[in-house]
Structures are given as structure tokens and as C-alpha cells.
């Protein structure tokens, strides 16, 4: 008996619609976040993460309604990230039915925001999202340093990713969502060295993200990356694999999962 490793599908939402080509064969409306959430829940997703990529401020309220609707019929933990900049944003999402919020850029520009958020709402609902890129390798090509990047991986900050993760936990992060900007979208698998380095540096759970292209990648994230949870988007959205298949595969590799 032990704690299961989690599989978390991630949905990118723009103006209340899921984007990045969700293609379920028997779903009525492939862009409806509620329908997709329901599907993932039935397949055995352990949690759901919604990333609000809405550009305009006016449409942000739409995300609140999405969360309300999903929370009304899907009874697993929900995390909402994207555009969380003030305590009021967190309160609004939690009241709508989110269990956790992901803080990314706002943490980089104002680390005290993480502390204030954890003090007010509890560390259990504060996920700090870290976008990291490898910046240095040793003579053998072994990666030795990663830095935090903002603006979708375009802007370097000079901040060391491992130190940053430890600092964020110190400030009250209850979980780290770690995305490799080198791997994101490549389908070449997680940056395992980065994942392991962060996981070993912090006491809180680490979610590996960025690069999943097949089911072995998910298993490797846990077995070699020492991740507590694995997040993926496209392999599930394009129905290449179901979550149930992903879990069976991980179980076959000796990983404890909720079946």
C-alpha cells in the first residue's frame, strides 16, 4: 500500500474554449472544457489542470464559469493556472471550485506574492509553476545548470531553477509544476535530469511537464525523474492514448497508480 503517482491531463483554455486541437472521436464538441474534463475523469485522470491562456483581461471571467461548471460535475482535484496575479484572483478561482492555483510569472516578479498566498489560503492550494531551460553543460554534455524563463520561454531571468524551486517551497509553495522549455512540444520526453534535480531539492511533490510523446516517457518521469506526478497535454488530447492506457502502462512498469 502506498501513495499513487498521479497522471494529470492539462487543458489550455482560451476564452472559455479548449484549444490545441482536442480530437476525441465520440465527443460532441471537442472544444468544450466541461465535456473534455468529464471524459478525462471517466478515463481515470487523477487531477485536472486548466491553463488559462486568454489574452484579454475581459475574458478572464469566462474561466471562472468554466471552473464552476467543471467543479459541479467532476469530483477530482482541479488546478487553475494562467493570469493569477493577485490574492483576489486566487480567491475567485477557489470560490469557483478550484482546489489549487498555479502561480508562474507573478512569482518571478514578486516572490512575496507566493508567501502571502500561502499564508492566506494554505500551502496546499499554492502550486508554483516553473519554466526552466538548460543553460550550461559540463565537458561530457551533462547538464549542470537550468534557469527560469518567462514569457513562454523567451525571456531569461538569470535565476537558477533548482535554487528557485527550493526558495518557492520555503515561501510556501505546496507543490511544484516543473516545465522544461527545451522539451515542451518536442515529444522527446521529460528533461529527466532537471526533474530529478528539482525533486531531490524540495520536500513537496513535483509535477513533471513538457515533452511527453509516448507512455514510456510518463513512466520515466517517475522512475528516473523521481516525479510525484506527470502532466501531459497533446498525447491525451489527440487521443493517441487514453489515460487508462497510460495507467496500465505505468503499472506494468512497477509504478503504483490508481486504477
Amino acid at each position: 500500500m502506498s501513495l499513487a503517482k498521479r497522471i494529470i491531463p492539462c487543458l489550455d483554455v482560451d476564452g472559455g474554449r479548449v484549444v490545441k486541437g482536442v480530437q476525441f472521436v465520440d465527443i460532441r464538441d471537442a472544444g468544450d472544457p466541461v465535456e473534455i474534463a468529464r471524459r478525462y475523469d471517466q478515463e481515470g485522470a487523477d487531477e485536472l489542470t486548466f491553463l488559462d491562456i486568454t489574452a484579454s483581461h475581459e475574458q478572464r471571467e469566462t474561466m471562472v464559469h468554466v471552473v464552476e461548471q467543471v467543479a459541479g460535475e467532476v469530483f477530482i482535484p482541479l488546478t487553475v493556472g494562467g493570469g493569477i496575479r493577485e490574492l483576489a484572483d486566487i480567491r475567485r478561482m477557489l470560490n469557483a471550485g478550484a482546489d489549487k492555483v498555479g502561480i508562474n510569472t507573478a512569482a518571478v516578479f514578486n516572490p512575496e506574492f507566493v508567501r502571502a498566498a500561502a499564508d492566506r489560503f494554505g500551502a496546499q492550494c499554492i502550486v508554483v509553476a516553473i519554466d526552466a531551460k538548460q543553460v550550461e553543460a559540463d565537458a561530457d554534455g551533462k547538464p549542470v545548470r537550468w534557469e527560469i524563463f518567462t514569457h513562454g520561454g523567451r525571456k531569461p531571468t538569470g535565476i537558477d531553477a533548482i535554487e528557485w524551486a527550493a526558495k518557492m517551497v520555503d515561501y510556501g509553495a505546496g507543490e511544484i509544476l516543473l516545465t522544461s522549455m527545451d522539451r515542451d512540444g518536442t515529444k522527446n520526453g521529460f528533461d529527466l535530469a532537471l526533474t530529478r534535480a528539482v525533486s531531490e531539492a524540495v520536500d513537496v511533490p513535483v509535477i513533471a511537464s513538457g515533452g511527453v510523446g509516448n507512455l514510456d516517457h510518463l513512466a520515466e518521469g517517475v522512475l528516473e525523474g523521481e516525479a510525484d506526478a506527470v502532466l501531459a497535454a497533446s498525447i491525451f488530447h489527440f487521443a493517441e492514448y487514453t489515460i487508462a492506457e497510460a495507467k496500465q502502462h505505468m503499472a506494468a512498469r512497477g509504478i503504483e497508480v490508481r486504477l
Binding site: 502506498s2 501513495l3 498521479r6 487523477d46 505546496g174 520536500d203 513537496v204 522512475l223
Partner: peptide, 23 residues
């Protein structure tokens, strides 16, 4: 307690977060 050993090696994370079995 701090630093409880994890079954797969390393240490168990706190908070205890996720799906666990209830006897």
C-alpha cells in the same frame, strides 16, 4: 516526521498529496 524513506528510494514528500489507500 521529516525524511521518511520512500519505498522506491529517496524520501517521502510532505504534504502527503494524492490518492492513497484507505483500510
Amino acid at each position: 516526521p521529516e525524511g521518511m524513506p520512500a519505498p522506491e528510494g529517496g524520501k517521502l514528500k510532505v504534504p502527503h498529496m494524492g490518492w492513497n489507500q484507505v483500510h
